[in-house]
């Protein structure tokens, strides 16, 4: 565990805290994509099946349980909470997210590290995570009014991926040059998807303006 990995994980955790804070205090999930949140539930459950087969550390196990639990809780709020669900931006959250699942699964069948169920599902979850933010980014483009908590949530989520890249560079030089193609390439793709958002987020922050993404 290095400082960049820890910073990445903490940023990821903070993004979820910010999202839950928005939902619980404002009783609103406006601007949040249910499609993206559902994809995260699939990502975490398929990736962390190794909870039963592989023990890395107490830290890893605890974080995995937190990520599964919070992602399920967020989807529960958005789908079933009687007040929160009414604030869902249903008409603007139109990305056909289920179409992302088959290509990621086929890719996982073609390029897993080993041809075992847990390795294939693990690779699938890495590929799916890379594109899971797309419905959320599309929803932000369509939103005329992006509130601060929603903007912060997406920014923290992107920052987590960027920090993981720094972590990989650091690990490459400190841990006898091990290669992790699957997470590296997927992570680069995932971070690149945020480039446009980062640009407008930082610009609005510097100019003290409200965040708006051009369509």
């Amino acid at each position: 565990m290095n400082i960049f990995r820890l910073a990445g994980d903490m940023t990821h955790l903070l993004s979820i805290v910010v999202l839950l804070l928005k939902i619980r205090t404002t009783k609103s999930c406006a601007g949040i994509s249910l499609k993206t949140q559902e994809l995260y539930v699939i990502v975490f459950i398929t990736r962390y099946l190794d909870l039963f087969t592989r023990y890395v550390s107490f830290y890893n196990t605890a974080m995995k349980l937190v990520f599964i639990g919070t992602s399920v809780a967020i989807v529960w709020y958005m789908r079933l909470h009687k007040v929160v669900k009414q604030t869902y931006s249903r008409d603007e959250d139109t990305f056909k997210h289920y179409l992302l699942i088959p290509p990621c699964f086929i890719l996982a069948l073609l390029i897993p590290l080993e041809f075992t169920v847990t390795e294939i599902l693990w690779s699938f979850s890495i590929y799916l995570e890379a594109v899971a933010i797309l419905p959320q980014l599309l929803l932000l483009q369509r939103s005329s009014n992006i509130d601060n908590l929603t903007g912060s949530y997406v920014f923290l989520l992107g920052a987590y991926r960027a920090l993981y890249i720094v972590n990989w560079v650091y690990r490459f030089f400190t841990e006898t040059h091990k290669i992790r193609w699957i997470p590296w390439i997927s992570g680069l793709v995932q971070t690149a998807l945020y480039a446009d958002f980062f640009y407008y987020y930082i610009k609005s922050w510097k100019n003290h303006e409200k965040l708006r993404l051009p369509a």
């Binding site: 990995r5 994980d9 990821h12 190794d50 592989r54 890395v56 890893n60 974080m63 995995k64 990520f67 590290l113 080993e114 390795e119 693990w122 890495i126 993981y164 972590n167 006898t176 040059h177 091990k178 290669i179 992790r180 193609w181 699957i182 997470p183």
Partner: peptide, 10 residues
């Protein structure tokens, strides 16, 4: 150079 999985990360 050795190719490994990334199971130790989250």
């Amino acid at each position: 150079l050795k190719v490994v999985s990334g199971h130790d990360e989250l």
